[in-house]
């Protein structure tokens, strides 16, 4: 799909995703080695966006499996269409049971769920398994076969192997430790907060109306907040929100009043706001 790391970065940038060297390298390797990509990092740094951008760049269809507590085989992998099977049985009254049985367990009666969808067909696909850590441990076992061999075993049908391997991205917020078996099958990528220069470019890209100087100030204030011991430090998503807020308010420079009034966009806990205000000397107006 890609020839070099620089090409990855350039094409992702065209799709509106500014990748750090680490991200570009890992995406390049995931494509080259044909391995799934496990992305971890704090909320709001663009883990899901990365999968979307890769899909756009590759001209592939994005198949998404959103994990949650209690997601199971029949929602993730496949399910038999019981109603249709019953119809089929009652429609063919006079045939023998053997004929019916081979017929109702054919692909026609199989309802593919995201994981099966991703490995069937010849068109390029990106499989996004979102918030893997929210799913139960049993689901991880289900993923292992797909991630290592790109195949699914349906007892009644046999093994379905991918004719064209999808590009797989798993995301996790690390609210639960994923099993070692799953991690071993993936390339690991940690997306942290971007450095100052990259974040400035991201802000300029997402909020084009913002002036260069203001974007720089915004990024520096956010950087200072991330160094404080807060319960929830602002992420890239919050930086962009804040930049949009400032633009909407028509502020062209930062000052105490503006920052104090809009701190709630960046920080989501009252005690965080108080602490940050104290550290930034906001009360000394």
């Amino acid at each position: 799909m890609f020839r070099s790391v620089d090409e990855v970065a350039a094409r992702l940038a065209e799709a509106g995703y500014l990748a750090s060297p680490a991200v570009a390298t890992t995406v390049f390797l995931a494509d080259r080695l044909g391995k799934p990509l496990l992305v971890e990092g704090p909320a709001g740094v663009g883990k899901t966006e990365l999968a979307k951008a890769v899909a756009e760049v590759a001209g592939a269809r994005l198949v998404r499996l959103q994990c949650y507590e209690g997601v199971d085989e029949s929602r993730a992998l496949y399910e038999w269409n019981h109603a249709k099977q019953l119809l089929r049985i009652s429609a063919g009254r006079d045939e023998s049971w053997d004929e019916t049985r081979t017929d109702i367990f054919s692909e026609e009666f199989l309802l593919p769920r995201p994981l099966l969808t991703a490995i069937r067909g010849d068109d390029p696909k990106v499989l996004l398994i979102d918030e893997t850590d929210k799913a139960d441990v049993e689901v991880e076992g289900l993923l292992l076969e797909i991630l290592s061999d790109f195949q699914v075993t349906v007892p009644e049908l046999g093994t379905i192997t991918a004719t064209r391997r999808p590009f797989v991205v798993l995301t996790s917020n690390a609210s639960r430790e994923l099993s070692e078996a799953l991690r071993r099958r993936c390339l690991f990528l940690h997306i942290g907060f971007p450095d100052e220069e990259l974040e400035r470019r991201i802000v300029r890209l997402k909020v084009p109306g913002l002036s260069q100087a203001l974007a720089e100030s915004v990024v520096r204030v956010v950087g200072a907040l991330r160094e404080m011991e807060l319960r929830k430090v602002p992420s890239v998503a919050e930086t962009i929100d804040w930049a949009r807020t400032l633009l909407a308010l028509g502020a062209d420079t930062l000052d105490e009043t503006v920052v104090r009034d809009t701190l709630g966009v960046l920080l989501k806990h009252q005690d965080d706001i108080l602490r940050a205000a104290a550290k930034l000397d906001l009360d000394a107006v």
Binding site: T25, A30, G41, R184, F188, L189
Partner: peptide, 11 residues
């Protein structure tokens, strides 16, 4: 970055 992606399993 390449070696980190292939060898490491956690932050």
């Amino acid at each position: 970055e390449g070696l980190a992606a292939t060898l490491l399993h956690g932050t």
